[in-house]
Amino acid sequence: MKENLNDLRAFLVVARTGSFTKAGAQMGVSQSALSHSIRGIEERLNIKLFHRTTRSISTTEAGEQLYQRLSPLFDDIDNELNELSEFRNAVTGTLRINGNEHAFYYALGDKFVRFSQKYPEVNLELVAENRFIDIVAERFDAGIRLGSDVAKDMIAVRLTDKLPMCCVASPEYLANYGTPKTPYDLTEHQCLLHRLSNGGVMNWEFIDPKSKGRILKVQPQGTISANGGRVLENYARSGLGILWCPLDMVEEDIRSGKLIRILQQWDMDYDGYHLYYPNRRQNSPLFKALVEELRLVK
């Protein structure tokens, strides 16, 4: 039995997104057309591939097995087709890049916009999350992480200078609860917590000004947590706690007086963001264009 490759690709996108609506938007087809394609595959195979409810869709055991086996095969096909662009020196294809919210929105947002404007034929999929992943195993073309977190067997390209961190709070919060003088005083304050993908809370790190190079780790305490910095920034502006975050996230609020920088002499700097990817990608015109647009230029 020969399956239509377009139908199989539709199956993969639905399985990955868990939604006919999202899959249809990605593929530029209607939800009903996708549903018809999936039903056709199930009827021809005589196997149910998805559990469907009025609110959600998920793969059955058979559907998950099919997804796990087909996904790398289709990725390899896409990669081989992308590599052919080298022969006509064209920049086309698909890029799946894993990073975090801060990298995509604050540190590199303008560069990604320029890349998409310059190369409109490139399908760009940016996946923002906090967890550390194996980009090869999870079928990403590249990842963006701080330099110290980049796998040693990858090609790494520096994208930004050092990343300065800071502590901020609103004038109202500091007027009501006082200003901490050292990170040790944070135990007496309401901290806005950055929730990690594993359910834990991100520690806050500082450099001891009396002992340069000594890193002080603080486990913040508070009643408000979120897995995105922009949400916590809004709570900080509203006077509901102290926020520890990259400086570029709150520079505008600091200039306007909505937030006040505190504990500045304890501020920590991290190594900058790097793009990393397997060495087999380095000669692709698509990757050369991406690196050229994102890399740090001094």
Rank of each mutant, 00 (worst) to 15 (best):
L95H: 05
H102W: 04
L163H: 05
F140W: 04
N123Q: 12
A169Y: 04
V136R: 14
Y177Q: 13
G93I: 02
K111Y: 08
T179R: 15
G93Q: 03
N98C: 11
T182Q: 02
A128P: 11
I97D: 03
L146F: 07
I97A: 06
E125P: 00
T94P: 00
K111G: 02
F87L: 11
L126Q: 08
M154G: 00
A107S: 15
V168D: 02
G143M: 07
A169N: 06
V122L: 05
D141G: 09
F112L: 10
A90T: 13
N130A: 09
N130W: 01
Y184M: 10
L174D: 08
D141S: 12
D141K: 01
N82S: 15
N82C: 13
G93F: 04
E86I: 14
G147F: 04
V91T: 13
F140G: 01
S170W: 06
P171W: 10
K111P: 07
S170R: 08
T179A: 10
N130I: 10
A103F: 05
L163T: 11
N100E: 13
L159A: 09
D161L: 07
T160H: 05
Y106S: 13
K152W: 01
F112A: 02
I144P: 01
E138V: 00
C167N: 08
Y105R: 15
G109S: 05
A103E: 06
D134E: 10
R131W: 00
G109D: 05
N82T: 15
V122N: 05
E121C: 08
V168F: 03
A169D: 04
K152F: 05
R96E: 09
A151V: 03
Y105G: 00
G99S: 11
I133F: 03
V150K: 01
G143A: 14
R88V: 15
N100M: 06
A137K: 15
I135F: 03
F104S: 09
F87R: 12
Y177H: 15
P164F: 08
L163A: 02
L108G: 06
V91D: 03
G109L: 12
R96D: 08
P120W: 07
E125T: 11
L84N: 03
S170Y: 07
N89Q: 14
L126P: 02
E129N: 14
M154Q: 14
R145K: 07
I135P: 05
L146W: 00
P183Y: 04
K118Q: 15
E172K: 14
K118F: 00
I135L: 15
F132L: 12
Y184G: 03
S170F: 06
V136L: 04
C167S: 14
L108F: 10
G143E: 11
G147Q: 11
F115P: 08
L163C: 02
P183L: 12
Y184P: 00
L159V: 10
R145T: 03
S148Q: 14
P120D: 11
E83C: 01
V168I: 11
E172I: 07
V127H: 12
I97P: 03
S116R: 15
F112P: 04
N98H: 15
R88K: 09
Y119L: 05
T94E: 14
P164V: 10
E83K: 12
T92P: 00
Y106I: 13
R158A: 14
K181P: 00
G109C: 09
